[in-house]
Amino acid sequence: MSEGKEMSFWGHIGELRGHLIRSILAIVVAAFVIGFNINWIMDHIFFGPTRNDFPTFRVVNHFSRMILGEDSIHLPKDFPVRVQRLYQQFNVMMAVSIFGGIVAAFPYIVWELWRFISPALHPKERKNSIFIINSVWILFMVGVLCGYFLILPFAVNFGVIFKISDIIVPLYDLSDYTTLFLQVILGMGIIFLFPVLIYFLTTLGILTPTFMKTYRRHAIVLIMVVAAIITPADVLSMIMAALPLIILYEFSIMMCAYTHKKIQKAAANLPAVQE
């Protein structure tokens, strides 16, 4: 009997190992694809927010011309980037490839996770878990896109236009820009998973909508702190990061209320079912 349990345990470990290996292979394949196309990706995606024709800047300037009669964002034609170490470009290529591989393979990684846990779930739980699993990768991708199109361009714009003297000639470090890029995008992708965390905490009975509403002001202060951590020091970038997070918090309150009400309803019907 104990041998059967031991075999069952190691069977689960072996199955988990298979899912992890396939997930890692997906990341490696995606990273290799990005690495082989690194020149195009660096020119059009990585350095995209440094150009005036970036979609975010075009939208802002479009409305700026309608209201003010002129463009409000004027980035320099060139974004001079330097390297200071021999293997700096290689290290950046590896970082961008691995990061891009994780982002590209993230939906597949989440799907592998669901494949591992779904056999242990009841049909009703399996149906609900599909919604949660899809929410994980969708929220992560929305966070990544929000960081790329909403926060990073304004952070770059502030860093470029801010000057303390006309004598200073701007020359930007490749590693600094890479750190900013990954920090903003990965940070927003992770933070956008907040509603999923709220769902699990509500399901476990740790969190209630009353608690979230009561401490809303404290949460906003914490959101501003988090926004300041994942963005540079300028106020505009921090505000642009905080706004979607505040909206996300309000959405989390509604989801918490819905989940809490559903749990209470199930608990109220439980005695009747037992009778």
Rank of each mutant, 00 (worst) to 15 (best):
E3H: 05
G4I: 01
I24P: 06
F36H: 09
N39R: 09
F46Y: 15
F47D: 08
F47A: 13
T50E: 08
T50Q: 08
N52L: 14
P55F: 15
V59L: 15
V60F: 15
V60N: 14
V60P: 04
N61T: 10
H62S: 14
S64L: 02
M66S: 12
D71C: 08
I73F: 13
F79I: 05
V83K: 09
R85F: 11
Q89I: 14
F90C: 04
F90R: 00
N91Y: 09
A95G: 07
A95N: 06
A95D: 07
A95Q: 09
F99D: 03
G101I: 10
Y108Q: 03
I109L: 13
V110D: 05
V110Y: 07
E112D: 05
E112P: 01
R115E: 14
R115N: 14
R115P: 11
F116H: 11
I117N: 05
P123E: 14
N128V: 03
N128R: 06
S129L: 08
I130T: 04
S135Y: 02
L139E: 04
M141S: 05
V142E: 02
G143M: 00
F149H: 06
L150H: 05
I151G: 01
N157L: 03
F162D: 03
F162T: 04
K163C: 00
I167W: 14
Y172N: 08
S175W: 02
D176K: 08
T179N: 13
V184I: 15
I185F: 03
L186C: 11
G187S: 05
L197K: 04
Y199P: 07
F200A: 04
L201W: 12
T202F: 15
A219T: 04
L222H: 00
V225H: 00
T231Y: 11
L236H: 00
S237I: 04
M238E: 09
M240T: 00
I247V: 13
M255R: 03
Y258M: 14
A266S: 06
A267R: 15
N269V: 08
P271H: 01
A272M: 05
E275D: 11
